[in-house]
Each structure stands twice: as structure tokens, then as C-alpha cells.
Computed example of a mutant assay.
Amino acid sequence: MSSPITPLDLTLDGGALTARLVDFPSVSGDEKALADAVEAALRALPHLTVDRHGNNVVARTNLGRSERVVLAGHLDTVPIADNVPSWVEGDLLYGCGTSDMKSGVAVQLRLAATLTEPNRDLTFVFYDCEEVEAARNGLGVLVRTHPDWLAADFAVLMEPSGAVVEGGCQGSLRADILLTGTRAHAARSWLGDNAIHKAAEVLRRLAEYQPRRVAIDGLEYREGLNATRIDGGVAGNVIPDECRVHVNFRYAPDRSVEEAEAHLRSVFEGFELDLVDVSPAALPGLGQPAARDFLAAVGGEPRAKFGWTDVARFSALGVPAVNYGPGDPNLAHKRDEHCSLSAIAETEERLRAWLS
């Protein structure tokens, strides 16, 4: 017999609903109970059509509007750090996931429950496993299995952004530069060829590298190319025959994955380069009509997103997307993670004004 579903009360205000969600543990891979509760709460709303795949829940209005907007957020959190259940101190709600990103999910649920006649058709996406490896990401699963569920003219990812619009995201390319030599006894080093010494040229190129600053839709993206790890050496008395320099290239969204790889290979021409991981960038799409309306409604000065987020998945589907949520990204994953209750209410009301 299956366990009874713990109900979610969507008439609670955004802060109280966030607290309820925080008190509903959902560490990555263990989101089923929360997904069950979200699905049950949404199925009780007659103006929504609800679908589910695994622990990913998608609810939609079907009013025949000329535009469709996605509001998306992940249900999972990093492991709990003695910060559940939640607690309140003044205007601050503390607890695991308050900032990243159950405050954003609470706003989604509040809007899903109360916007019965929005000016655009709406799709609400609640997905699992965002905080772990990309292969398990629930939004990625939906992209592969049900891309039609995600079709839209514009998307808002409710990732923590301090209630400021953060457009698009950087791409990320990680690679190993393999340096080889000849092993020998350190006492007879002339018989060997030191692979670690060859890293000097790689490090010189990195030190002299001048990263671009790129303006897109009025937002400045700053690229970066850095060594993040060096591995090499056999023993204290051995000339090493192998060394790896691990580099991370954060690139602006005017580059495709292929262009980013070609650029990296040109920087390290003459060296063997082994790609480890590639994540595409996402254009901000702020020139789109829906994005312009969104910016006018929520106010504030938009900024570029430094880092990678799931807006890239929407961008790959041809859906312009921005990051916009009440949480502070600098507080994500911290033991004292918290979110402003007033920011939750303000974010909900700004979105409501845009969609009403």
C-alpha cells in the first residue's frame, strides 16, 4: 500500500508556503514525496492540465492565448545541514532550500493556484535532480522525452537571482591538456624528459590570456579561461612522464559549443587536448517582446548570469529564457541559507502583475 500524500495548502502566502516546502525534505534523488504533493495540489485546480514523468510535474493552462510562458523550478536540494525544519527571524526564513530554490517553487505554486485567467498561457514545470550530475537532471529528461511539454515563447527559471533579472548564462567547457615525457631516475634526470616542466608553457599562455567582454542585449558577459587543477608526478625520486593541466573555459553566449572548442584548441595549439565536459551557453533573449514586457513589469536593472543554469536547456529548444527568483544565489547551499519573506512576496506580485 502506498503512503498517503501529505497535502500542500496553496492558499498559504508565499513565505508560509516556502516554509512548508522546506519542511518537506527533498534531497536530490528523494523528491518523490514532494512531487506527489505538488502533483496532487495541481490536479485539484480545474483550470490546469497536469502531466507527470518520473518526479517531474508539468501543469498548463490551455486558454488559446497568443503567447505561452514557462515558469520552471527544481524540487530538490543539496543534503540537509541541520537546517530543517525551517525557522523565521524577523523578515528572514531560514532552512535548506529557502534560497535555492523552494522560495521560487512557492511563487510558482501560488501563481498556478491563483492565475485562472492569465494574459498568456502558462506552463509550470517542477523537476528533480538539478543539484547533481547533468545526466539525472529532470528538466533534461523532459527535453529528451517530452519536448512538446516545454514548448513556449519565453521561459522564466526561478533560480535565485536576488529578485533581479539575470539574462541567459555562460557556457562551460572543461578539458585536460595532456603533457607527456620520459620517466627516469631523478639522480639521472638527463635520461628522462620531465612532463611537469612542459606545463610551464601551458601556464604561460593562461597567464597571458586576455578574456573577452561581450555585450549582448545590453548585458556584459565576461569570459574566463583558467587552470583549475594540475596532476602529475610519480614519486619523489622519479622524473614524471605524464602531467595533466585541467582548464575551465567560461564563454559568452555568442559562442556555440563548437566555436568555444575551436577557440580553446587554438589557444593551446600544439598540445593534446581532451574534452571532459561541455555545457552550452544561453542567449538572454531580452529583445523578445515577452522579455521586454517582463523587464518592464518586474523592474530593476538586468544583469548577465555568471555561471551555468538550466536556461541553456530552454535556449537549446529555441525558447528565450531568463533567471528570476527571490532567493540570494550567494546563500545557496550554505548551512545558514535563508530568504527574505518580503522578497518572496515582491517576486510573486511582480510576476502576477506581468501575467494579469
Rank of each mutant, 00 (worst) to 15 (best):
L122E: 01
F124D: 03
D76K: 09
V57I: 13
R136N: 11
D82V: 14
A37V: 09
C96N: 14
D100H: 12
A41T: 07
G104H: 11
R174P: 03
S86N: 08
H74K: 03
P79G: 06
G73V: 01
L173P: 00
H74F: 02
L109K: 01
D100M: 13
A59G: 06
E159V: 07
C96W: 02
C129P: 00
G64W: 13
V57E: 09
V141L: 09
V88G: 07
A175G: 10
G140T: 08
V132Q: 10
E131I: 03
R174Q: 15
S86L: 07
G162F: 03
V164M: 06
D121K: 13
D100Y: 12
L157I: 13
V78E: 01
G167R: 13
V165A: 12
I80H: 15
V132T: 15
G171D: 11
R65C: 11
P85I: 06
A134C: 03
T145K: 06
P85V: 09
P160L: 02
T145D: 14
G162L: 09
Y127W: 11
M101E: 00
C96L: 08
A72G: 13
V164F: 02
L75Q: 04
G64H: 11
E130P: 11
V141R: 04
R68N: 04
E31F: 08
A106D: 02
V125F: 04
V38Y: 09
Q170M: 10
D82Y: 10
G97S: 10
V50W: 09
V58D: 03
A134K: 12
R120H: 13
S28W: 12
G97D: 03
E131K: 01
D91Q: 04
L139W: 01
L63W: 04
A59N: 07
T49E: 14
V69A: 05
T61I: 04
D148E: 15
R120W: 01
E159A: 11
T145V: 03
G167C: 05
L92P: 05
L92W: 15
A106Q: 10
W149Q: 04
N55H: 11
R68A: 05
G167T: 06
S86A: 15
A163Q: 11
N83T: 06
G104R: 04
G138E: 08
A175V: 02
V143D: 02
D30R: 15
E67L: 03
R174L: 09
H53P: 00
V69M: 10
R144I: 00
H47N: 02
A81W: 00
I80D: 03
S99P: 01
A113S: 12
V125C: 06
A134G: 08
V50S: 07
G29R: 02
S66G: 10
G90I: 11
C169P: 00
F124Q: 06
V78I: 08
V141Q: 13
R174V: 01
V141K: 02
A72H: 04
L92M: 14
H74M: 07
S66F: 14
N55K: 01
G171A: 12
A152W: 10
E89A: 10
A175D: 09
I80V: 15
V143A: 02
T114K: 13
V70Y: 03
T123Y: 00
A59E: 11
V50N: 10
L34A: 04
L45M: 03
P147E: 06
L109Q: 07
L150N: 02
A33N: 08
